[in-house]
């Protein structure tokens, strides 16, 4: 098997499992899937799910049924930066439609698509608990709030620079 946690990730796995009672290691499934997704390129190929099943001594089907239920697990490859823009009522009345249209135009993609350079994916999501700071989106582990066109431009540029700095 080629997908494997490194030592540090293994330590984290043990910490996660230790939170639950003896024999209830399946309870760690959601946190461990987060760890796997973060460790294996932002999505969960079948191989990663099978690996998680073996680590937690559960059946692969138990992992598949969970991974397909929760919206945060990506079952297909995604770009380096996933723009998850909220489109629910409170954000909608605060102008999320315009922001979504603007991001589509600036990135040249539709919701659900990834830019050709593999950098950005656009996803439309439901309420993220930031309704008072609308319009907003989640990118990785952070929220970008009070979005305006200028702010969207600056954010896209920021991530582009981040990639250039890494290379």
């Amino acid at each position: 098997m080629s997908l494997q946690f490194n030592n540090e990730q293994m330590t984290e796995l043990k910490r996660l499992v230790a939170r639950y009672p003896e024999g209830k290691q399946k309870s760690a499934l959601l946190p461990v899937l987060h760890l796997a997704q973060d460790s294996f390129g932002g999505w969960l190929p079948t191989e990663a799910m099978d690996y998680v099943a073996s680590l937690l001594s559960i059946e692969p089907i138990e992992v598949y049924e969970v991974a397909t239920f929760y919206s945060m697990y990506n079952l297909k490859p995604v770009g380096k930066f996933v723009f998850e823009v909220c489109q629910t009522g409170p954000c909608m009345i605060s102008g999320s439609d315009n922001i979504i249209a603007y991001i589509q135009k600036q990135l040249g993609i539709l919701p659900g698509e990834t830019t050709k350079d593999g950098l950005f994916t656009l996803k439309l999501v439901e309420c993220l608990g930031a309704c008072g700071y609308a319009p907003m989106m989640q990118v990785g582990k952070v929220y970008r709030e009070h979005l305006t066109k200028e702010k969207v431009d600056a954010i896209i540029e920021e991530y582009r620079q981040q990639i250039i700095a890494q290379n």
């Binding site: 959601l30 239920f69 929760y70 919206s71």
Partner: peptide, 9 residues
């Protein structure tokens, strides 16, 4: 213990 969900109202 803090247990993170994964996106489901």
């Amino acid at each position: 213990h803090v247990h993170r969900g994964a996106g489901a109202y």
